[in-house]
């Protein structure tokens, strides 16, 4: 990383922390320097910025957000931020024939030794539901790399700070809670694993709310 991208990353991190007032709460694990997949609830564009900004700086340098290519490849500023500043892993959503399989792209990033931030709901949750059903990606990635631990991350209030489609954020206090890591079990079925991962996130939401 260059001085320019470092300082932009620093600015974005401070800005996110000030606007969201978020403090990271490590409930189920410690912020250790090991390879992880952080999976969180997705309700706003600022979600991965918030997880990213909540990580200690040394971990942040080795953690890459997974983001939708359709949004981030539009325009030079977005491209600069996602590629150079955040080192995002871009995947095609609703891909056409011939484009890369998102799981291959994410697995390649894991092979390089980086951690990932991803949102297994697949899309931003704009409904009244607390958490949408998970897509199968998390399970397929877990099968590919069963050695990497998966950490649930619950973000509270971010949807109220910046609802989908609104340009101006409201400066409410958010919280970011990191839960106990989980791994796919021997021969665990897709639906069972996804239900377990989703429940881990919902349990964390309950813990986060009760303080």
């Amino acid at each position: 990383m260059s001085l320019l991208t470092d300082s932009i990353a620093g600015l974005l991190t401070s800005f996110t922390r000030i606007v969201t007032g978020a403090k990271a709460r490590w409930i189920g694990c410690a912020p250790a320097d090991i390879q992880r997949i952080y999976f969180g609830n997705h309700s706003s564009h600022a979600d991965f910025m918030l997880i990213w900004a909540s990580l200690p700086a040394p971990l942040r340098a080795k953690t890459r957000p997974v983001a939708g290519a359709d949004y981030w490849e539009k325009g030079r500023i977005r491209q600069f931020i996602i590629h150079r500043v955040l080192r995002g892993v871009l995947v095609e959503r609703g891909r056409a024939d011939g484009s890369a399989d998102p799981i291959d792209t994410m697995a390649a990033a894991l092979e390089a030794g980086d951690s990932l931030i991803l949102f297994p709901e697949g899309t931003r949750n704009t409904t009244d539901e607390i958490l949408l059903p998970f897509k199968s990606g998390l399970y397929r990635l877990a099968l590919r790399r069963p050695d990497v631990e998966m950490v649930p991350v619950w973000m509270d209030n971010l949807r109220r700070v910046l609802p989908k489609g609104e340009p101006v954020p409201v400066p409410l206090l958010c919280s970011v809670s990191f839960g106990a890591p989980l791994r796919v079990g021997q021969g665990e079925e897709k639906d069972a694993f996804l239900a377990r991962a989703r429940q881990a996130l919902l349990d964390l939401a309950g813990l986060a709310r009760s303080g």
Binding site: G21, N157, V170, P171, L172, L173
Partner: peptide
């Protein structure tokens, strides 16, 4: 500002 932020949160 801080008080309103805590309240609305």
């Amino acid at each position: 500002l801080m008080a309103l932020r805590e309240y609305i949160t």
